[in-house]
């Protein structure tokens, strides 16, 4: 009972309401392509939230986050291809993907997180590059750049089921990560972002926190990769490309760093841009080169709205309520 009343805060009600609306949406929108696109948004939202744990909450830049996404993707694809495509195989694949991602992110983290920020960026970039090369060269296992298609458990082949599964995962991970970022652990992460040496001198083992959060981010990203494979049923080396990392970076920055809703909105915006703006290519040439638009928006966001869409709105709102409080105090 206590738990339920605690869960029923205003913001939670709003989020759950939106989730419920999204849950009944596929029964009205029956077009496969639309359902597929929204499923993709959910999956990339999970991926972007994991990235924001690093960038927005802890202030760590990763240039190789695609690596964890790709680890999840390839593990699922290979398990589904080599073993029976049933739920048991899938659970096994998820377990291995998560474990593998955890080990890799632990190793990368322990090596570079004690150094300055750009070393983590460079080493993740290097590792992602190594995974890309491995996926291209280990042809027996990955079939190289051509990739391969595979079968997945019967029940997940329906696009509506996949939509609901992705949505449920998104909601669960969203609340899980919110619990994490609101916990004392999350507060220490924010403290590290704001002033690392002060956090250290307060007695927190900064390195432990950073490694732990990078492992959590890696695991969540790997899970997003698993879902991505289930919705696509085809894998090739593009999941390891730098483009994937840049996409998730744009999603996080434009949506709003340091929030969990921001990456979800960013994911929706970028995915919609992929699908619709490129369709406008014959209207005007600028739409074919939509990266220019996004890059420009992104640069302006970094300079003028470093908090992104959600962060800026939130700062405005809280600023207003704070000034209200001040006025009330002055009045009394």
């Amino acid at each position: 009972m206590n738990l339920i009343t605690r869960m029923m805060t205003k913001s939670n009600m709003i989020y759950l309401g939106i989730a419920a609306l999204l849950l009944i949406l596929p029964f009205f929108l029956t077009g496969r392509s639309v359902q597929f696109m929204i499923t993709q948004i959910f999956i990339f939202a999970i991926f972007a939230m994991s990235y924001d744990l690093l960038l927005g909450y802890t202030g760590i830049i990763s240039f190789g986050h695609a690596m964890f996404f790709g680890i999840g993707a390839y593990t699922t694809a290979i398990f589904m291809d080599r073993f029976d495509a049933n739920i048991l195989g899938l659970v096994l694949a998820i377990g291995v993907a998560v474990l593998f991602a955890a080990i890799v992110s632990f190793i990368v983290g322990i090596l570079t997180l004690r150094l300055k920020s750009h070393f983590y960026a460079m080493l993740t970039l290097a590792f992602a590059g190594l995974f890309l090369v491995a996926a291209e060269k280990w042809r027996d296992l990955t079939k190289g750049n051509d990739g391969f298609t595979f079968r997945i458990p019967e029940i997940l082949r329906d696009s509506t089921v996949m939509y609901i599964v992705s949505l449920v995962c998104l909601v669960l991970i969203f609340f899980g990560l919110r619990r994490l970022t609101n916990s004392p652990f999350g507060r220490v992460l924010v403290a590290i972002r704001e002033n690392e040496s002060r956090t250290e001198s307060l007695g927190y083992k900064v390195l432990h926190y950073k490694v732990l959060v990078s492992v959590v981010a890696g695991v969540v990203a790997s899970f997003a990769g698993v879902l991505y494979m289930l919705s696509l049923r085809f894998v090739n080396t593009s999941v390891f490309h730098t483009d994937v990392t840049i996409d998730v970076l744009l999603m996080t920055i434009i949506g709003g760093v340091g929030t969990l809703v921001g990456p979800i909105i960013g994911a929706a915006l970028i995915e919609l841009a992929h699908h619709w703006i490129s369709g406008l290519a014959n209207v005007h040439w600028i739409f074919e080169r939509w990266i220019i638009l996004y890059g420009t928006v992104y640069i302006l966001v970094v300079i003028f709205f470093p908090l992104g869409i959600v962060g800026t709105i939130r700062a405005k709102l809280s600023g207003r309520s704070k000034s209200n409080v001040l006025e009330k105090k002055r009045a009394s």
Binding site: L55, A121, L249, I291, I292, T296, I299, V302
Partner: peptide, 16 residues
């Protein structure tokens, strides 16, 4: 962090 982010964005713009 802002330098890495903004120059990466500018890189994409230059390339496109």
């Amino acid at each position: 962090i802002q330098q890495i982010l903004i120059t990466l964005g500018f890189m994409l713009v230059l390339q496109e």
